[in-house]
Amino acid sequence: MRVESPVVSVRGAVRSMYSRTDGRGKREVGPGLLVLPAFAIYGVFVIGALLAAVVISFLNWPIGGSVSFAGLKNWSTFLSGGGVKALGVTAEVIGISLVVQIPLSVALGIFAAGRQRYRAVLSWLYVLPLLVSPTGIAITWARLFDPTFGGFTSIIQQTWLSSRAAAPVIVTLAFSWRIVPFYVILIQAAVRTIPRELFDAAAVDGASGARLIRHILLPQLRHTIVVVAILAVTGALTAFDLYFVMTGGGPDGATTTLAVGVYLQAFSNQVLGPASVYAVVVAAAGLLTAGLVSRATKFGEMRSQRQ
């Protein structure tokens, strides 16, 4: 593994560019050099690791075994086998996340932005699920849906977490339950920055309740809603903790998202090559989303400037 080498060469280039001598002929450190300590660990563990993942995805690399070149084998296995299934699960998680999280966050964010005392108390309660780690939430929800000693056992007999159809839905609901409070905070803050005059003017024009929300509030919130949607997509794309802890990726791969797939391939099957294919797909999807977003927002800025 020589992932450090690009960093070393960058360091050389930067040193030659930024060292300079002061008036008294003493060598002085240029300000540019101060980027190096941070960039060194970042370059190794983020940029270097990403490049390495691409390389490893073309290798046979069993943990503890010998490394050899695999060509496209790992990629074709991904496309013909579990990879497509994991892509499907991830797509399902993204879909459920968008459908559940966005309407809920928008409605609750608008609600929580009101100044009434009881709304302040309720929005204080809303934040509570965010305070427990995803692992802790997963354990709590797994107990909640335990078929024999669970929170719902006395009401209905259920084995939902071992059902292939229900398990991804339940886990995604748990995932949404924890993350919606965060989006509510974002929407709430955005609502509170909308100038009051807009509402007063609309009220004078005779707009009320639902029409106020449709014609004033939602257009003003458009940007924040897009932000929430992107966060929901990237959150679902990299979803690991809840899906791994609640169901271990099962039953029968029904909750094996791409990120869970990375872990299971690398540390259950102990094959680093196929695991890296999953990893590269996750990273590529993340970068692609970010690229599309930045293009879209640039496009949006251009349009709003023209108006």
Partner: peptide, 24 residues
């Protein structure tokens, strides 16, 4: 270059590099 790479890194999820981080 460093600045651009920091910018790009915002979009790199740890889930996508975990295998190589393990090896490093």
């Amino acid at each position: 270059l460093c600045y651009v790479l920091f910018l790009a890194g915002l979009a790199i999820p740890i889930e996508g590099t975990i295998v190589s981080v393990f090896i490093i």
